[in-house]
Simulated assay, not measured.
Amino acid sequence: MRLQHLHLLLTLAETGSLRAAAETLNVTQPALTKSLKQLEEEFGATLVLRTPKGVRLAPAGELLAVRAATVVRELDRAREEVAWHTQNTRGTVTVGVSPAAGLLLAPPALSRFQARWPNVMVRLVDALYPKALQQLRSAELDMALGPMPAAGIARDLQAQPLVQSASVIVARRGHPLARARRLQDLQQAAWILTGPRQGPGDPIHLGFEEKGLAPPRVSLECESFSTLLAMLPTVDMLALVPKRFFDSHGPRIGLAAVAIEDPLPPTTIHLFTRSDAPLTLHAQRLLEAFVHEARLAQRAD
Rank of each mutant, 00 (worst) to 15 (best):
A60D: 10
A257P: 08
A171G: 00
T94V: 15
A65Y: 04
A190T: 09
M1Q: 04
R123L: 04
T33Y: 03
R295E: 15
P203D: 02
P196K: 11
L229N: 05
V170Q: 02
V93P: 00
A22H: 12
P52I: 06
R295F: 07
R299G: 09
L8P: 07
R2E: 13
H205S: 15
P99V: 14
M231F: 13
H205F: 05
R137S: 10
E14D: 13
S35C: 08
L157C: 01
V168P: 08
F245D: 02
R182N: 06
A154S: 15
W117K: 06
H249K: 13
R197E: 13
D236T: 05
A45N: 04
M231Y: 14
V71Y: 07
F225V: 10
P147I: 02
Q114T: 10
S165L: 11
D262T: 08
M1D: 00
E223Q: 12
E40L: 07
P251A: 09
G250A: 04
V163P: 07
L228G: 07
R295N: 13
R77D: 02
A178G: 03
M1V: 09
P30M: 03
L64W: 03
R56A: 10
E81Q: 13
V66P: 00
F272Q: 09
P107H: 01
V93M: 00
T280N: 01
G250Q: 11
V27D: 00
G102I: 08
N119L: 06
W117C: 01
L157P: 08
T70C: 04
R197L: 12
F208Y: 12
T70W: 00
K53V: 05
P130T: 06
E74W: 05
P99E: 03
L279F: 03
V82T: 13
A256V: 15
V120Y: 05
T92H: 10
T92I: 06
P176N: 05
Q87R: 15
L264Q: 13
R50G: 01
E23P: 03
R244I: 15
L57M: 02
A178L: 02
R2Q: 15
L279H: 06
Q164R: 12
G44R: 04
Q164M: 11
